[in-house]
Amino acid sequence: MSVDNCRIEITNLDSDDSDLDSEVPILDGSAREWVERIEKDGLVAAKDECGNDCEKLAPYLNEPIHVSKNDSFVAAFPSPKVRVSYGIDFPQVAIGSQWFSLAPLEDSLYAREIAPSRTFCIYEEVEHMRNAGLIKGGSLDNAIVCSASKGWLNPPLRFSDEPCRHKILDLVGDLSLFARFGNQGLPVAHIVVYKGGHALHTNFGRHLNDSFKS
């Protein structure tokens, strides 16, 4: 959304629940409400100590970089604009194999094509996750749920490939950790991901950080 200089504060109003100390509101499981609020409130140019507009910076990738684990990978290639291509594969449920590619990844396209995509889960895995103390706030109101035997439990989907688009949403959020010194988080590159997840995304971000240090 072109926000590259801000301060974020999260306050837990329920002080009796220590498990929620660092929880960002999940809302409907997508980024749509965040986008709507940013669009409503608007943006202003960031100022430096002298009151001058801060220069907008973007890290350009000069050579390919990749990380992988088993059959999952994240790779980035030099490109004149930001492009993201993402593939997922869940053969055990109706999600199946999906690919989605988007370029340029700018605020208007992100708001329309990526931000509304909700997080998703496989019904048969939910109980195991809850027993592990995860997704305590998860429900059919903030995630789309797919069952191996019954298909989608809370249709309709916002896009036929909504799960794949949400993975791009995850990638954008995870790579925002790479933002530093006024740079945007996403490098100007073609990023290709297959069967990624938060751990692989952030590992890729570490490699990006190391490559730009050198």
Rank of each mutant, 00 (worst) to 15 (best):
L109I: 01
A189Y: 01
K213D: 11
D21F: 07
C6W: 07
D141Y: 09
S15T: 12
Y123A: 14
F159H: 15
E106K: 11
R7A: 08
G42A: 08
V24W: 10
L102V: 12
I88T: 09
P187Q: 04
S139Q: 06
Y110K: 11
Y86D: 05
S2A: 13
V35G: 06
V67I: 12
I191K: 01
R112M: 06
Y110N: 09
F120I: 10
Q98P: 07
S101K: 08
G138I: 08
I168D: 02
A143W: 07
D21V: 10
N142Q: 08
G29H: 08
I10T: 09
A179P: 01
R158T: 12
V74I: 14
R7N: 05
E49T: 03
H201F: 01
R37C: 09
G133V: 10
P116G: 12
I10N: 04
K150Q: 13
D4F: 03
V35E: 07
Y110A: 09
L105R: 01
V188S: 04
G197N: 13
G196R: 04
V145T: 14
L171Y: 01
A31Q: 09
V35R: 07
Y123P: 00
M1Q: 13
F159N: 13
S147K: 10
I191H: 01
S72I: 04
Q98T: 06
A143M: 13
L20C: 15
P104N: 07
R165I: 09
K213V: 15
R118W: 09
A179R: 00
N131E: 15
E125D: 13
R158E: 10
S2N: 12
D174Q: 00
S22P: 00
F73Q: 08
S79D: 13
E124V: 03
F159Q: 15
G137D: 06
H201P: 01
G173P: 05
E63K: 11
I168T: 03
C146W: 04
S176F: 00
H207G: 00
A189T: 02
R83D: 01
F181M: 10
T202K: 05
C121K: 02
A58K: 08
E63M: 04
R130I: 08
N203Y: 02
N131I: 02
F100Y: 14
S68H: 11
H166A: 06
A76M: 05
V67R: 11
G205R: 03
G182Y: 03
N131W: 01
D89M: 04
L105T: 02
L200F: 04
H198Y: 02
W34L: 10
D28W: 08
D89G: 05
K136G: 14
L27M: 12
A199S: 12
R83K: 13
E125Q: 12
M1D: 11
Y123I: 01
G196S: 06
F90R: 10
